[in-house]
Amino acid sequence: MTAPLLSVRNLTTEFHLPDGKIARALENVSFDVMPGQTVGLVGESGCGKTTTLMSVMRLLPASGRITSGRALLKGNDLMQLSERQMRAIRWRDMAIIFQGAMNALNPVMKVGDQIREGIELHNLMDREAAEKRVGELLEMVGIQRARRDQYPHQYSGGMRQRAMIAMALACSPSLLFADEPTTALDVMIQAQVLELLKQIQKELGLAIVMVTHDLGVVAEVCDTVVVMYGGKVAEYGSADFIYNQPQHPYTQRLLASFPGLNEPSDNLASIPGTPPRLTNLPTGCRFHPRCEVKVDACARVDPPILETSPAHYAACHLCKGKEAIFA
């Protein structure tokens, strides 16, 4: 069995709020990313998907602290590296496509220069070669080379997103984080961007971790899915398995609230209530206040993560299996 490219182990991240409270945004998050594989991080807003990516890249805002856990990239623990070593790894080994490309591009810098920026910072090649690479990258994502000298406001929304992808590929990383790459784009452009990501993954063999709300996207592109709720992993396993035999009640409800094309109904199913406030987490299972099948233990004991079948994990008192140890 091949070694994972990225292993996240028991990652716990806290935010220190101005009023002195501590928000526990991530707790014991563990998952693996295999080379060339696509992992989907799904869940409602505010359940820690983006925080997971930012913690792994160590780009949390000043109020964020990673209190424990490891993130091994090719065997190196990113949490132990100095800021300088971390800077050398960012973009070179792992790149990120931010949520909303319009904001992630500097409005007063030419798009081509922004793509070249990463290549230059890592001293990968001389200026002439870097220029050539910028042209190739732009063409790879379907933007004409002549657009190199334009500014982001001269690009349409879909083009900006594709420029962001080109930028992320500039240093040929082996791991690509995509934070909701298709939100804020219309359906046609969404399909193009996903198609592009799939195609690039096939050509370059990179691993992608994709954060999304869109379960349709997950079904289309992901090999493995991590379902998160309230900063914890609720369920983790292969996409096929999670779609066909979801174990955790949250996953079941999440899938049920996604309208199917084959059986259209008048009412959209939803999960009553809202995700927990991170400063005021419920006791026991974080999902129990919204869960329809809860038992007595749910309000008291936080369920451990169980291996319900080989390589499939769920954190629920109703599931059977032996306790999984991620070490």
């Binding site: 050398a88 960012r90 973009w91 790149a95 931010f98 904001n103």
Partner: peptide
């Protein structure tokens, strides 16, 4: 884009 600049190292 400042966060992105940090992300590119």
């Amino acid at each position: 884009f400042v966060a992105r600049a940090r992300a590119i190292g």
